[in-house]
C-alpha cells in the first residue's frame, strides 16, 4: 500500500502559531492580504472589500465569480484550496439583493476569506458553478438550489437534494415562503403520502433498473422532454 506524505497546514504562513482572537472590533479590522491582491488583479470586478468582526468580505461581480475563485484556488501566493461552504442569504428588505456566499480557506497560509456575489431581485437567479474547481461544491450547490432556487451554471447534476423532486411548494428558505409551508397540513400530508417510495429513482438509476414504465404519467411526460428527475 502506498503511504501518503503528511500535508502540514500553515506551511507558508507567517507570524508564528495562530492564537484565539480577542477583542475583535466590529468594523475596520485588518483585512486579509488576499483582498489587496484581488483588487490589484481584478480591479473592476471587485466591488468593495469590508472587514466585519475580523473576517474579510469581498463583494465581487457575479459575472466573474468563477474566474476569481479559480485564481484564488490556483495562484501560488493564495492557495485557497479548501471550500468550506456555499450558501445564500436573502434579506428581509425586499429591495436588497440576494447574496451568494462562498467561504474559502487557505490551508497553507491559514487564511479565511468570504466571497460574495449579489444577485438583484427581478433578474434570473443564476451564477457560475465552482464544481470544476472544488468537488465539495457539488452537494452544497445542490442544497443552495433546493433551498433558494439559485441555478448554478455548469453544475453537472443540479436537482433537489433535501426536498423531493415533486415538491410543489417552492423554495423553503426564501423570505416569501411561510414557516409552515404554502399548503395546509392535510394537503401536505396527502401529497407526501401520494409519492411511491419505490418509483423514486433518478434518471440514471431508472435506465439501470429499467423501471421507467413504473413512473407516474406526468413525470414520464416531463422526463421525455428532457427534464431531470429528482430524488
Amino acid at each position: 500500500m502506498t503511504r501518503f506524505e503528511v500535508v502540514k497546514t500553515g506551511a507558508n504562513a507567517t507570524g508564528g502559531q495562530p492564537a484565539t482572537q480577542r477583542n475583535v472590533s466590529h468594523r475596520g479590522g485588518e483585512a486579509n492580504p488576499s483582498a489587496k491582491a484581488l483588487q490589484d488583479k481584478f480591479s473592476s470586478a471587485i466591488k468593495r472589500v469590508e472587514v466585519i468582526w475580523a473576517e474579510t468580505v469581498v463583494y465581487v461581480d457575479p459575472a466573474s465569480v468563477h474566474e476569481i475563485i479559480m485564481w484564488l484556488h490556483d495562484d501560488q501566493s493564495q492557495q485557497y484550496d479548501f471550500l468550506s461552504d456555499v450558501t445564500a442569504v436573502e434579506y428581509r428588505d425586499a429591495e436588497v439583493p440576494i447574496e451568494v456566499v462562498w467561504h474559502l480557506r487557505s490551508l497553507p497560509y491559514r487564511r479565511f476569506i468570504r466571497v460574495k456575489a449579489q444577485l438583484p431581485k427581478g433578474s434570473p437567479l443564476e451564477i457560475d458553478s465552482v464544481w470544476d474547481i472544488y468537488k465539495s461544491a457539488d452537494w452544497l450547490e445542490r442544497e443552495c438550489y433546493d433551498m433558494f432556487g439559485i441555478r448554478f451554471r455548469g453544475h453537472p447534476d443540479l436537482r433537489r437534494i433535501l426536498m423531493w423532486e415533486q415538491y410543489k411548494e417552492g423554495f423553503p428558505l426564501r423570505k416569501d415562503f411561510p414557516l409552515r409551508g404554502r399548503f395546509s397540513r392535510s394537503e401536505q400530508l396527502r401529497q407526501a403520502l401520494a409519492q411511491n417510495p419505490e418509483a423514486r429513482y433518478s434518471m440514471e438509476e431508472l435506465t439501470i433498473a429499467d423501471a421507467f414504465a413504473e413512473l407516474p404519467e406526468d413525470m414520464r411526460e416531463r422526463l421525455g422532454k428532457g427534464e431531470r428527475t429528482g430524488e
Binding site: 428581509r92 414557516l179 395546509s184 397540513r185 403520502l193
Partner: peptide, 25 residues
Amino acid sequence: SSQLYIPPSVIDELGEPFGNSVNQT
C-alpha cells in the same frame, strides 16, 4: 379518499392553531 387516519379538517385545525406567517419579526 385522503389516505389519512384522522379527518383532514381535524389535522388542519390541530396543525395550525396560530395560523401561518412569513413575518419573522
